[in-house]
């Protein structure tokens, strides 16, 4: 697997963002607990949940993994040496999934440790519950799936800057805006469906099974589009 500096730089930025979000939440936690707005269990869940943003960096890594080959022209050699476009696409997807698993494992380790690191700073003791475990599993799943999602978008768009901009735009603005403006539609967007899986808890979200199906549908649709376009379009 070759991803150059993209691998560790994406991981580093994601870890910094996750740590900032977790520690920032704990800073306000004692006041919220005092007001009765949350519980120590809720704070623990939220600190674990705050690592969901690693999914964005996992997706960016997947997107860069593919789109930089188009940028450098190395994709031409990949096609020539791979023994067929379908085989190449499958191989890249599997590598993307493996990258996602590695990213997901890193995220789970950090997310699992973060309550014990951050809560004592506010003189709080973490309270790990079944809900926390489900949240942790959800964070792992969405981070893992982020990379193949990025890979597929990279295949479809083929331009590194455009793919990165699309991922950022969808994740940070479009999906969130749709949820606020048209919740009945917005809850079916990929990143909002993913927030059901890491148990964000908003009442307008899909159930976990429905969200899982929605995520699968997005990935299958992107896979079909990527495959069709890859076979149809000129490589260079």
């Amino acid at each position: 697997m070759w991803t150059g500096r993209a691998w560790w730089s994406m991981a580093l930025i994601g870890v910094l963002m996750g740590a900032l979000a977790g520690s920032g939440y704990v800073t306000e936690a004692d006041k919220d607990i005092a007001k009765g707005a949350t519980t120590i269990e809720g704070v623990t869940d939220q600190v674990v949940r705050s690592w969901f943003m690693m999914l964005l960096f996992s997706a960016l890594l997947g997107a860069i993994f593919v789109s930089r080959e188009y940028q450098s022209g190395a994709i031409g050699r990949s096609v020539l040496l791979s023994g067929g476009r379908g085989r190449l696409l499958t191989a890249k997807l599997l590598v993307g999934l493996a990258m996602g698993v590695v990213f997901g494992a890193l995220t789970v380790a950090l997310a699992a440790a973060s309550p014990s690191v951050f809560l004592p700073q506010a003189q709080l003791e973490p309270a790990w519950t079944h809900e926390t475990t489900l949240t942790l599993i959800g964070v792992f799943v969405v981070t893992t799936l982020g990379a193949p999602w990025g890979v597929l978008l990279g295949w479809i768009i083929r331009n590194q800057a455009a793919t990165v901009a699309t991922l950022l735009g969808l994740t940070l603005f479009v999906d969130e805006a749709l949820l606020r403006l048209a919740p009945a539609v917005g809850k079916f967007t990929l990143t909002i469906a993913m927030s059901s899986v890491y148990r964000d808890g908003k009442p307008e979200l899909l159930s976990v099974p429905a969200a899982s199906l929605t995520i699968a549908a997005w990935l299958v649709a992107a896979g079909i589009a990527a495959r069709a376009l890859f076979h149809k379009r000129d490589v260079l």
Partner: peptide, 25 residues
């Protein structure tokens, strides 16, 4: 057709404008 040629990558070597090396290596 190249796509259907068995062991194509071992039988045909290519140096072509637009096919670059892996970046940063």
């Amino acid at each position: 057709p190249y796509d259907e040629l068995p062991h194509a990558a071992h039988r045909v070597g290519v140096s072509m404008d637009g096919i670059g090396a892996l970046p940063g290596v």
